[in-house]
Design a protein around this nucleic acid. Structure first.
Lengths: 201, 201
DNA sequence: GCGCGTCCTTACCACGCGGTAGGTTGTGCG
DNA sequence: CGCACAACCTACCGCGTGGTAAGGACGCGC
C-alpha cells in the first residue's frame, strides 16, 4: 500500500467526486461538473471509470474503506474494547471536523440505498458496521445483550456523533456562527462522555 | 385547523412530493414522477405550485411543522422539562418507525442546505431546534451549561434517534432482516434510556 | 522508424428535465 | 343563459444530462 497518495488524474477525480457527491448527492452532481473541477472534460472521466455509477460506487467504497482504516487503527493494540471504541469515535470526530465530506457521502449513500431495490452495499461499509458491532459485543456491559442490541448501540452512537456535522450550515444559520462554532468545539468531548457512558454504564 | 386531512389534489401532491423527495432527494425526484404517482401530468403540478422549488420548500416546511407539532404536544402539560423531552423523543421515535419519510426528508434538506450558498432555512425547522434547545436548558442538569452545550445535547440525541431509520435497508442487507427488525424494535426503548441518562445524569 | 496503448479531446446523440403557451373541460354564480 | 375561474390537458422549447464515436498528442518497447 502506498502511503503517499498518488497525484494521478484518476486519484484526483475520485477526490473531486467524493466532494461533489457528498455536497449535492448522486443525482445532483454531474460527471461534467466533477471533471470540470480539474479542468478536464467529462469524457476524460468516462475514459477512466466507464460510467457515472462506477465512479460513484468507487467513491463510496473508498470513503467507507477510510472509515474502516480508522477503526482498525483504533483496534490494533490489545486494549480493552471500551478503550478501542472510544479511540475510534475520537478519531472519527476529529476526521469529521477536519472534513465532513466523507461522513456526508456515506450518510447520503445509505439514504439513497433505502430507495433502491437493487441492493448493492459496499463491502467496506459492511466491514465497518460488523467491526463496530463485534467490538461492542466484546464489551463487559454489552457482551450478553445480543447482536440487535449491539447494533442499536452502534447506530445510536454513530448518529449522535455525525448529525451535527451532517447538518452543516443549517444550525449556523439558525443559531449564529458563534453558537454553532461553540457547539462544534464541545461536540467531541461531549460525545466522548456519551460514548463512555453508554459503553461502561 | 382541520383535523381530518383534506383529500384535495393539492394535498395529495404534497404527500407524494414528501415521499419522493425523501426517497430520492431534491435532484433525484422529478416533478413529472411526483405527478405521475396520482395519474396527473407535471403541468397539473406546476399549475398548483408554480415551480419545483416552491413545491419542495412547501414539502420541507410542512414536514418540519409536523415535527414542531410533536414537540408542542409533548410540552403542553406543565410537567418538568425532562419529562417533556422524553415524551417528545418517544413520539418522534413512534412517528419515525411508522413512517421514516419525514425524518429522511429533513435530514436530506439539511444536507443539501450545507452546499447551498443561498441560505433559506424553513422557519419551522428553526422553531423545532429552538424549542428543543430551550427545553434542554430548562433542565436541572443543563440549565447552567450555556446554549452551545444544549445545542450539542439536542443534535446528539436527534442523531442517535434518527440514524437507524435514515439508513433504511442498508443495515437490513448487512445483518439480515431478523437482526435488523430486532434492532428496530429495541431502538425506541434504548433511546429512551439514553435520553433519560443524558438529561438526568 | 514504427506500431501500440494511454490519455484526453471535439463532435454528436437520444433523452429527460423544468418551464411556457394555449386550449378544453366542468362547475358555480349572477 | 353567459361569464369567470379553477383544474387539467397536449404540444412545445431550451438546456443539461449520461454515454458513444472518432481522432489527435504523447511516451515506450522493438
Amino acid at each position: 500500500m502506498n502511503t503517499s497518495p498518488p497525484q494521478t488524474t484518476r486519484f484526483q477525480l475520485i477526490r473531486s467526486a467524493c466532494r461533489l457527491f457528498a455536497a449535492h448527492g448522486y443525482a445532483g452532481a454531474s460527471i461534467s461538473a466533477i471533471a470540470r473541477e480539474l479542468g478536464l472534460s467529462k469524457q476524460a472521466l468516462l475514459h477512466h471509470f466507464g460510467s457515472k455509477d462506477a465512479l460513484y460506487a468507487l467513491a463510496v467504497e473508498q470513503t467507507a474503506a477510510e472509515m474502516v482504516q480508522l477503526l482498525f487503527d483504533a483496534m490494533q493494540d490489545d486494549r480493552p474494547p471500551e478503550d478501542q471504541l472510544e479511540a475510534f469515535f475520537a478519531a472519527f470526530m476529529a476526521q469529521m471536523q477536519a472534513d465532513p465530506a466523507p461522513t456526508r457521502l456515506l450518510i447520503r449513500a445509505m439514504l439513497d440505498h433505502a430507495a433502491l431495490p437493487t441492493a448493492k452495499a459496499g463491502p467496506s461499509l459492511h466491514t465497518l458496521f460488523e467491526g463496530l458491532v463485534a467490538t461492542v459485543q466484546a464489551t463487559q456491559r454489552w457482551q450478553d445483550a445480543g447482536m440487535p442490541r449491539a447494533l442499536v448501540v452502534v447506530t445510536q452512537l454513530l448518529g449522535a456523533a455525525s448529525l451535527m456535522e451532517t447538518t452543516g450550515t443549517s444550525l449556523e444559520v439558525m443559531f449564529g456562527r458563534a453558537a454553532h462554532d461553540g457547539a462544534r468545539d464541545r461536540n467531541a468531548v461531549m460525545l466522548a462522555e456519551l460514548v463512555s457512558g453508554t459503553l461502561r454504564g
